[in-house]
Nucleic acid binder design. Structure first.
Lengths: 200, 200
DNA sequence: GTGTATCCGTAATTAGGGTTACGGTTGCTG
DNA sequence: CAGCAACCGTAACCCTAATTACGGATACAC
């Protein structure tokens, strides 16, 4: 006997999954509420009742995706491995998520959103949420005597430059395919190696 | 007595300038041929006669912008300064151009273009054209005994990671304002400093 | 079983945009 | 000057999409 709230939540997940399929297949410009409704076997009226308007639906997509990413990465922090091992696990995952089809589609939506709202949401719940996680890891590395830096914020920014660089924008404009897990592992290992050279 | 070709070229520049104004103000999704025509005090018919269709107009914008950027940077290479001085001049300019309003607008257009054509044009005439310029500078730095690397392509990629990092995507999704010239100078200097630490 | 809220499938309304077309004006050439 | 090409300003055609509305079906509560 599923509760009403749970049933609705389940239905919303189905609708949101359908939205991602349409978004990834057709881009933001090619994604209509009607298209999503049809794909999800839902009605326009339900979408508008639940999300308010198109922007509201996309706000929900961005917000929930970022929460999932954050939770996923945060669970990596619950280990008592040493900091560089955590980076070795976290780095490839982060890069893979940020360059995955879903993230690319959401970034494209944000690029097309002239209100700036989706970009703000994407960034606040994305990079800006991940930043303090990474900060904790790098501070742990400093406690362990592996890295040495004065400003933890700058150390994190450097790590992100080395890990991500311009991979995202090149994905978003369609110039890079989705990277393999091997590539992400290698690029993450390179980032850690270079970080140690610079801050070790 | 202006020649007919020159007059047309001049008129095209006016139309393209108007296109940029609309594009930067309203984003790609909010930019219509009618809007550009009106802003440029031109007719739809002229636009379609000269550019073929909307995609053709944007292709021209991307292509011409990239040519200008490349020529601008290439003129920096015609000096016989030492390599790191050239990087000191080239780096800030490149970063400033890549994060300027025009580049951001074009990247947004490319992100919205599901054909992938604008992204390909943007990248081929942008990053992929600048890459060999930078390669020549870094090879010059190696000749001068300042840097030492095995693969010049990797050295250039590292430099771009350090110079640009994720500045572009964050501009494109609306999370960063246009950076100041001072910021670009500082970030360029940091990139050179870190490059020397890693490859010096 | 009855009543009601919710949802689906479908359609309508409104607005906007890509592209083409047209009458009139302008500019150039012979 | 006459003829013609090119361009402007305007409108038309066709299509798409955001949002709202409606009849009917479904599910739930009493």
């Amino acid at each position: 006997m599923i509760l009403r709230e749970e049933k609705r939540s389940l239905r919303q997940q189905q609708i949101e999954a359908a939205a991602y399929e349409v978004l990834e297949a057709k881009g933001y410009g090619g994604t209509s509420m009607q298209g999503i409704a049809k794909h999800a076997r839902a009605s326009n009226e339900t979408l508008y009742n639940w999300y308010g308007d198109k922007q509201g639906l996309f706000r929900a997509l961005v917000t929930k995706n970022a929460e999932e990413v954050k939770a996923h990465l945060e669970s990596e922090l619950q280990t008592d491995h040493d900091a560089l091992s955590i980076l070795g696990t976290l780095g490839p995952k982060l890069l893979l998520l940020l360059t995955g089809d879903r993230a690319v589609a959401l970034n494209r939506a944000a690029a097309a959103d002239s209100s700036g709202e989706l970009g703000a949401t994407l960034s606040k719940a994305g990079r800006e949420a991940v930043f303090p996680l990474l900060e904790r890891v790098l501070l742990r590395a400093q406690d362990e005597g592996v890295l040495n830096f004065e400003h933890s914020g700058e150390a994190v920014a450097l790590y992100l430059d080395l890990l991500i660089g311009d991979q995202q924008i090149r994905r978003v404009i369609g110039r890079l395919p989705q990277p393999s897990e091997t590539f992400c592992q290698e690029r993450s290992a390179r980032a850690v190696r270079l970080l140690r050279q610079l801050l070790g």
